[in-house]
């Protein structure tokens, strides 16, 4: 199974376009053979079939209030679980928080997940740094410091 980098967000608004821009950055380059990149758009729960068929998943998304301007934030699985713990509401799409809480229900063996994010707006340089960190995590889970 591949490791997947799932880029989330809305490419039509600068407040939320980090994920799609990282997708574009990665899709334009040769990736390692066991890493795939997905433009997840606004998908949440609907991404479950992709996630369950992955060796490891690195989400890329805009973060709000969690990172200083220009900082690349990495959250590991435990940190993601803490952030998702209070999520109970299901919107039609079921967002990332809902997906993370639902994974143990919908996946027989959920893969390890992490998130790489940065605050908006993102410069092209920041997009490249987020992409590089996501790629590093996808290839080697030990790469990079994990902050919660």
């Amino acid at each position: 199974m591949n490791a997947r980098i799932v880029c989330l967000g809305n490419r039509y608004t600068a407040a939320d376009d980090l994920g799609p821009r990282v997708y574009d950055w990665l899709a334009a380059r040769a990736l390692p053979p066991n890493v795939a990149v997905v433009d997840g758009g606004l998908g949440g729960l609907d991404l479950a079939p992709l996630v369950e068929r992955s060796r490891r998943v690195v989400f890329v998304d805009t973060v709000v209030g969690l990172a200083a301007p220009g900082e690349v934030l990495v959250l590991d699985a435990a940190a993601l679980a803490r952030h998702a713990a209070g999520e109970v509401g299901y919107g039609h799409g079921g967002g990332l928080a809902y997906l993370l809480r639902a994974l143990p229900i919908v996946c027989a063996s959920p893969p390890p997940c992490a998130l790489v994010g940065a605050a908006a707006p993102a410069s092209q340089g920041l997009v490249a740094r987020v992409a590089a960190r996501a790629l590093g995590l996808a290839e080697s889970p030990e790469e990079g410091a994990v902050t919660a």
């Binding site: 939320d16 805009t62 967002g95 928080a97």
Partner: peptide, 22 residues
């Protein structure tokens, strides 16, 4: 009801970060 989502982000509410839907 389904109003279109336009911003989708990992957010912070108060002292604790929260995930925000749609």
């Amino acid at each position: 009801p389904c109003l279109v989502c336009t911003v989708h982000a990992f957010g912070k509410s108060g002292r604790r970060g929260t995930l925000r839907l749609g």
